[in-house]
Simulated scan of single mutants.
Amino acid sequence: MFTKTLAAVTLGALGMTAAAPTREARDVYVPPVLYPHAGTVWFSGQKHNVTWDNSNPPKSISNGAFILLRTGTFETPVVLAHGFDLRAGRVEVTVPEVITGNFSIVLFGDSGNWSDDFLINGVDF
């Protein structure tokens, strides 16, 4: 700590500043999920298009996209889709075999956002 302070004081006395490392500016893209929405019912094994508003994407999207299944406040390890282009506005997924319950999907790219809760009719124990 003393060394950093001494270096800053010395540079300041000489009229110099230590340059901070520059980082490339990144756009954060958080497109709202349109489907599934509240009131949606999926059944295990079906195929559905997860859709989102892609009307205003940034010029550059820095991360790969993927969709996870979420229950309550927890993301499950269930990956519904990955490696798709966020600019597409939709991707087809297959509804996994899960216990019947309320879920949401999490759309990841530069940021994560999730859909409304919806019902998946899956397996019952």
Score class of each variant (00 low, 15 high):
P31T: 12
L86S: 10
G45Y: 14
F118C: 01
G109R: 05
I61H: 12
S60T: 14
T10V: 07
W114D: 12
P77G: 09
G39D: 08
W114C: 08
V33E: 01
V106M: 03
G101S: 05
G45M: 09
G89H: 09
N121C: 03
D124L: 10
D53C: 08
D117P: 00
A7V: 13
I67C: 02
P57E: 11
P31Y: 14
V95Q: 02
I105P: 01
P57Y: 13
E75W: 06
G122K: 07
E92W: 07
T40G: 05
A65T: 11
I120T: 06
T100G: 02
I61P: 02
N102I: 07
F74V: 11
I105H: 00
M16E: 06
N56R: 15
V33D: 02
Y29G: 02
D110G: 06
S115W: 12
R26T: 08
T5R: 13
G122A: 05
I61R: 06
R26P: 00
T40C: 12
M16Q: 14
F108T: 00
W114N: 15
T22Q: 10
V41R: 14
N102V: 04
T17K: 13
F108G: 00
H82V: 00
S104R: 14
T76I: 04
F74D: 04
R26I: 15
A18Y: 01
L80V: 06
G83K: 11
V78M: 09
R90Q: 14
G64Y: 14
A65Y: 12
A8T: 10
P31Q: 15
Q46H: 12
I105G: 01
A8G: 03
V33A: 02
H48A: 05
M16W: 09
E24H: 08
G72F: 10
V41C: 01
L68C: 03
V106H: 02
I105A: 04
V123T: 08
E92Q: 15
N113S: 06
H48E: 07
G122C: 05
T51K: 10
G64M: 08
P21G: 06
T22C: 07
A18M: 01
N113A: 11
P77I: 09
F2W: 08
D116H: 11
V30F: 03
A25I: 09
P57C: 09
R87T: 11
N63L: 13
E97P: 01
F108I: 00
N121S: 12
P21D: 11
L14K: 14
D124F: 03
R90T: 07
T51S: 12
F2G: 00
